[in-house]
Design a protein around this nucleic acid. Sequence first.
DNA 1: GACATATAGTTGTTTATGCAACTAAACAAA
DNA 2: TTTGTTTAGTTGCATAAACAACTATATGTC
Lengths: 146, 146
Amino acid sequence: MSNNQFKKGELYSFITGKASTAIGRRLQKNFKQNNIEITIEQWSVLYHLWKEDGMSQQELCDATFRDKPSITRLVDNLERIKLVKRNASKEDRRKNLIVLTPEGRELEAKSMEIANNTLNESLQGVTNGQIEIAKEVLQMVYENLK
Amino acid sequence: MSNNQFKKGELYSFITGKASTAIGRRLQKNFKQNNIEITIEQWSVLYHLWKEDGMSQQELCDATFRDKPSITRLVDNLERIKLVKRNASKEDRRKNLIVLTPEGRELEAKSMEIANNTLNESLQGVTNGQIEIAKEVLQMVYENLK
DNA sequence: GACATATAGTTGTTTATGCAACTAAACAAA
DNA sequence: TTTGTTTAGTTGCATAAACAACTATATGTC
């Protein structure tokens, strides 16, 4: 702790500033330039549905680190622009299963390509080892605060 | 790039999810528990004013990685709760110099103590070296995307 | 079965963000 | 001085977040 002290000051700007979300904003910008009219928040939901269609809203909360109201509204908006649909679960009538529409499924290929390109652009000059450590730190922080 | 590919998938959740802002949210929670009724975004502005009072809004934009409308509104809110005041610059009448009120200055000691405690809590088990690398990665990403 | 409790999701309110369009002052060139 | 450009800041609009309060269904216990 005492050892960390002198380094912490510089961290505050990153934590409270917008630097940590720079990639997300660039991703959204690149989507727009390619006529993909969704927000990164919406994309983060679609991303998990592409891996596993028909997740419940609660599962989407856990996957995206968001709370329930946030997911409710993201799904609202995704439903409004017809990329997903809420299907009532037959096993548990409290649950909505969120399923992709054909339009929602169609977005995967192009948007993943843009995402990969954006990530390459963002991580230029960053080594694999550094990425691993940065990920570990984020994970540990998240675990510490859970 | 090709080398990074397999690791990138796991990154998307962090980038688009809320894990990267977990410390900020915990900080805000800890403020509230100590009856400090400000948001972390407001705190991020105050933090820079404590180091240098009388910054212009543009300087606050650069320091906090925020755009001008964001700072306009953060200063609006900080002025409304009487923690800062806008002073018109005499040298350049386009500029507002943002100065702390006595109430604003008073918040520094207690909130910095809470921030330091929160950071210690968040970074438990993370070594200095790891913190350094995580900071470097964030900095490089930010530079890459500037 | 009846009651308490946990889980899934929604709604209301306040604050912040991203983007584009705007005003006003400063500066530069002719 | 006039005209054009840059810089500082504001406003409008849509989306998202945090938090608390809410409804409805499921589950566990007696």
